[in-house]
Write a protein that binds this DNA or RNA. Structure first.
Lengths: 352, 352
DNA sequence: CTGAAAGCGCTTACAG
DNA sequence: CTGAAAGCGCTTACAG
């Protein structure tokens, strides 16, 4: 009831209240509270009077009004085109989100999670859904697939955004923080070849997201570097079609090393690991196995670790950079992060 | 460049643009777009004209302006007084967040994660930090400890909020969705006693959060119901002070059953489990063990499971209920959810 | 050094 | 059935 304490007064104090209390204009209050903007000089007496009144009234700026009037509200959006986020507890995306949260906190930004955006249904991601992101100063997007039209529209309107994951759509105009799957995958294959393997198979999903095609590129590059034939290396397969017979057939054909990609669903790597087991084989004694990305189904598998947390942090930093750069001179920043190799226990010399 | 497509036009369309295109006033546009508010009747011709223009311009309402002018923007806040959220990947709070996200999506609400609020430092949770929550229509709070003043202030200003976890501060005026630890803990002890145990110890943290005191209450109630002495049952201990000697001492004294609380840090249960192991004992052969809440260190332990995901969902529902109820007639809703018992493998008959 | 005024994009009485 | 006007709480030229 005592508005002097700011408690129970029913209505939070606004600048006009401070102005009345301090006997100055609301403009002056705004100026004082905004700190020292260049070119503006306030008498110390006024400053103190305003500050004291603000303190007494328990003033805190209204973030909504601030956002409407200026163009910053220190809120960053997070919008996903992937399913299973963040509902899936063991989800692929959670570590990324953790990184996003950490860096956002470090930079004094709050996060807006746009919900109901997890459906794989691209029709849900229309302009209406996506324009919600404009409450924020800028937005992070992710998911294996991207609806180009709404992103193009946001980009065209000068809204700062950063994609998490490499993207080459829209003539390379999409800023992103991604992962260098090409190099990491190539290094894994190099290692296999150094162990003497000459006949290998790369099992991948039948899905052309950049993270999949980049892994394939890395694998094939390495195979070529070794002077080996690439023809039969790549095998596209659904997780449901991966069984012991597939693995058995490969062995018959003299294959000694298997490589599999670990993506956001994780189902393919899991299926292969199960199939190897079901075929009564063990790694690396019977067969070497490499997983491109760490699989929860076999964490000790050899391969590499996707720097998901760092990816989140990096994306936030790039986004804030954009936000704080004048729209005219924003370069389209595209960055790839290196992966940490995992020695693991599933790669060994060629058996026999 | 063609503003008719809404692409590349530089500036998103607003109601004024639609008004100009349709040859009506901006008010009319607002009215049409708001749907049929009672008492307002628009001619079908006008409606169609406005709708078509809006479609053509790719209009999407600006949530910030909407929020400032009205009082809803379909954003819910999440603010935590606990540390390790959501940074800790195996965090206690993540399943709650998942529930929050699910229900928010179901109810068409976006989520604002207030960051930098995870510090245990209560001084950070001042009015300024907390008033940020007012960008949203209402806010969820959690954490074992609560700074009363800012919450009192928000409550007093009529801002809808729901605490996640039982709270009795502020004369019971804090709405919450909590967990019925009393009943769940009592049931666990009942089970121990039914197995013949007569001498038990309840190990708890030295921290008086409601979730801890409620567990203790449940334990002691059950002990009393069985007509056993309560004197030595409760033991307060830091995780660092729990070792094999403590467990050994209890056995010497004839204790046959141990109960430990699993809280957000999880350190105490983990320490006890390690201590039992280090003492060369196994459960339930040498000793029965119950964990009040599932411990990641021993998921198969007997006890109960805190319905964290459901807790999140429930809290969102209560919050939205509040938001959609006129400020005058909002009851202070306080709900407790039941826990799911875990049979587990660590409770057995009294040895020997 | 300070204030009056316009404006951010909406909603909501209030008039016609 | 529709429009002119005020207002939400700020920021930002623009005058003095």
């Amino acid at each position: 009831m005592d508005s002097g304490t700011g408690r129970g007064s029913g209505r939070p104090a606004r600048q006009a209240d401070i102005a009345a209390a301090a006997g100055v204009s609301q403009t002056t209050v705004s100026l004082v509270l905004a700190g020292n903007r260049d070119g503006v000089r306030l008498s110390e007496t006024t400053r103190q009077r305003v500050l004291k009144a603000a303190e007494k009234l328990g003033y805190v700026p209204d973030p909504v009004a601030t956002r409407l009037a200026s163009s910053r509200n220190h809120m960053l959006g997070v919008y996903t085109f992937a399913s299973a986020f963040p509902t899936d507890v063991d989800g692929f995306y959670y570590p990324i989100l953790v990184g996003v949260e950490e860096e956002a906190a470090a930079l004094g930004q709050d996060l807006v999670l746009f919900t109901g955006t997890g459906g794989a249904d691209a029709r849900a991601h229309d302009r209406t859904a996506i324009r919600r992101t404009r409450v924020t100063d800028g937005c992070l997007f992710f998911g294996r697939h991207i609806p180009e039209e709404p992103i193009d529209w946001l980009l065209g309107s000068g809204f700062p955004l950063v994609y998490i994951g490499r993207r080459d759509e829209l003539d390379g105009r999409i800023p992103f923080a991604g992962v260098d799957y090409v190099t990491a995958s190539g290094a894994v294959v190099d290692r296999l070849i150094a162990q003497g393997h000459r006949s290998l198979r790369y099992l991948r999903e039948n899905d052309d997201a950049p993270s999949s095609t980049d892994r394939e590129t890395g694998v094939l590059d390495a195979v070529r570097r070794a002077g080996l034939p690439t023809a039969k290396v790549v095998v596209r397969r659904e997780a449901d079609d991966v069984g012991p017979d597939l693995v058995g057939g490969w062995r018959q054909a003299g294959v000694t090393a298997l490589i599999v990609e670990e993506t956001d669903t994780g189902s393919l790597a899991k299926a292969l690991i199960a199939a190897i087991d079901a075929a009564g084989l063990s790694c690396p004694d019977d067969l070497s196995l490499a997983v491109l990305g760490r699989s929860p189904a076999l964490p000790e598998a050899s391969g590499f670790e996707v720097p998901r947390r760092e990816l989140g942090r990096r994306a936030v930093r790039l986004l804030v950079d954009q936000i704080t750069t004048a729209p005219g001179k924003r370069p389209t920043v595209q960055e790839l992060l290196p992966c940490r190799p995992i020695t693991g226990t599933t790669i060994g010399p060629v058996p026999g």
